[in-house]
Simulated scan of single mutants.
Amino acid sequence: MATLELSVSEDVIVAPVQRTRRLGPLFWTAIGWMMLVFAVAILAPVLPLPNPTDMDMLERRAPISTLHWLGTDGLGRDELSRLIYGARISLTVGLFAPVIGITIGGALGLLAGYFRGRFETLVVGSMDTLLAFPPLILALAVSAYLGQSIFNLTCILGVLGIPAFMRVARASALTLARREFVIAAQALGASHARILLRELLPNVALPLVAFFLLGVAVTIVVEGALSFLGLGVPPPISSWGSMIGEGRESLEIAPRLAFIPAIAMFLTVLSFNLVGDTLRALTDPRQGTL
């Protein structure tokens, strides 16, 4: 009996340690970079930065100096200021667009995975129809028709993310709807709303949050691609994608104008991917036992 109790207590102690070891240095480095980007983006108005839209044609493509830490662009605007204010736009679109996807897509997937039948067929068919259109081409067409604005761009990318979130929520709901705690709640006479909100939603929310971080990374890339093509946020507002697009004209003279925002976008997207993949692995029910 003493040996059994000792082995059980060792298992209880070892399990959290093994789970903590999964959060390696790359995970915490990614968290640190994300916190830095969020901090400078939020505090941009109070930081001692020049106006990102002020132009000085006498300081065009000025090199790195104490006055301009990252130099100036082709119109004499401070590159560091534009980079930080561009982070505000990229993060705004990158965060709020997946919120639309996770809200609508998560709700549809949860309902489809629980009720099944004709409703599931209708939802899955609608999402397949939306997925039939090439996402980038659809975003380009809608942006060109509705006009360039942060609101329009966020709504377009949010709608394009609905099918992916719906599939994640539906897959989780299909598995959980057959579990013992759901069957027990049904046997006790619980309503559908109570089962969905109290039993299924807390369990479906975990993989959705992990996928949300991956969606943020993808959205930042798509926003950057649209801004690079000139269909993102309207000038003089800057985002990382528009800065890369403007910097390509100066690749031979000042390649840093394209590389600096590209590196910032790369590190941010990589950080969101690393954190999202780690959380997805930790919340995957196949990684453990019940």
Rank of each mutant, 00 (worst) to 15 (best):
L6V: 12
L6T: 10
S9H: 15
S9W: 06
E10D: 08
E10S: 13
I13K: 15
A15P: 02
Q18G: 10
R19L: 12
R21N: 07
T29I: 15
T29K: 02
L47A: 11
D56V: 13
L58D: 07
E59T: 13
L67E: 10
G74N: 04
L75H: 08
R77T: 10
D78K: 11
R82Y: 02
I84A: 02
S90P: 07
V93Y: 02
V93D: 00
G94V: 00
V99G: 06
V99Q: 03
L110W: 14
L111W: 03
Y114S: 02
Y114A: 01
V124L: 12
A139H: 07
Y145V: 13
L146S: 13
T154K: 07
I156A: 06
L157F: 08
V159Q: 03
V159G: 08
A164S: 15
R167Y: 03
A169N: 02
R170F: 10
T175F: 02
R178I: 08
V182C: 12
Q186W: 09
Q186E: 14
H192V: 10
R194T: 05
I195R: 03
L196E: 09
L201P: 04
P207T: 09
A210K: 07
F211A: 13
L213T: 11
T219A: 01
L229M: 04
P235N: 05
I237C: 06
G241V: 02
G245R: 12
E249D: 14
L251N: 04
E252S: 10
I253G: 00
T268R: 07
L270T: 13
F272H: 01
V275T: 00
V275M: 03
D277M: 00
T283Y: 14
D284L: 00
